[in-house]
Write a protein that binds this DNA or RNA. Structure first.
Length: 233
DNA sequence: GCGACAG
DNA sequence: ATCTTGTCGC
């Protein structure tokens, strides 16, 4: 698939923050997608020694969750990790992986937040705009807001509230296990985001698309570190 | 100023 | 994110 919105990435944190303030207005929080046939999950892993990052994206047939394609890309991270500016660190590599896809996903699950962000523009929102695709943010911890504790049973939900606004849903994906945080990225309502995230569960805490993408890039990183340790790279 | 802080 | 093995529990 192709990146629809081209922007420069060599920005300073200050410039990045300003860009977020501008792009946030283009985010669509209501449903705007048809039948979901292909759903993708994306994640990234990197080697702290070299700052080389591996991005992975896996496309699944929905709702069967059968894999149909996976692609990867590697690149040196140029932007530092700054809470609230994660997208400027990870998006370049992730986009490179997405651009290798032959199958166009109808919706993308992103490892990180959507509107549950200080400027309501997390990486899920940003990637949604860049790829012009519906996206959902699936984070493992909170960036902003206060989470109401959901019931201890799998499937329980509770709101994630920030400054009086419900910006996400806390979802207990397994009995008594730490919940995940589901948020609107782009063109997906919070209600639909939770429904879809649930449909992407297969018995584990993390939804399959994101979890498998995580395993994918983790293996790529390990293989790289192995070769490097053996002085062959 | 202090504490919090996705991955 | 990454550093890290086994181990207790469902």
């Amino acid at each position: 698939m192709k990146t629809k919105l081209r922007t420069r990435w060599n920005l300073t944190p200050q410039e990045a923050m300003r860009l977020q303030e501008t792009l946030r207005e283009r985010v669509e929080r209501e449903d705007r997608f048809g039948t979901l046939q292909f759903v993708a999950g994306a994640d990234l892993a990197f080697d702290p020694e070299t700052n080389l990052a591996f991005a992975g994206v896996i496309v699944y047939q929905f709702p069967q969750l059968q894999e149909v394609e996976r692609r990867m890309a590697r690149r040196t991270l140029r932007f530092p990790y700054v809470p609230g500016l994660l997208s400027f660190r990870e998006s370049p590599v992730l986009l490179a992986a997405f651009e290798k896809l032959r199958v166009e996903p109808d919706l993308i699950l992103v490892d990180g937040h959507g509107i549950a962000h200080p400027r309501r523009f997390g990486i899920a929102c940003h990637l949604g705009l860049l790829l012009d695709r519906p996206t959902i943010g699936c984070a493992k911890s909170i960036l902003v807001g206060e989470a109401v504790e959901p019931g201890v049973r799998a499937g329980s939900t509770a709101p994630l509230v920030d400054k009086g606004e419900t910006v996400g849903i806390v979802l207990r994906t397994r009995d008594r296990v730490k919940p995940i945080y589901v948020t609107t990225g782009h063109r997906v309502s919070l209600q639909s985001a939770v429904r879809i995230a649930r449909q992407c569960l297969d018995g584990f805490r993390i939804p399959k698309p994101t979890r498998e993408a995580d395993h994918f890039v983790r293996d790529l990183r390990r293989a790289y570190q192995e070769r490097r340790a053996r002085n062959q790279i």
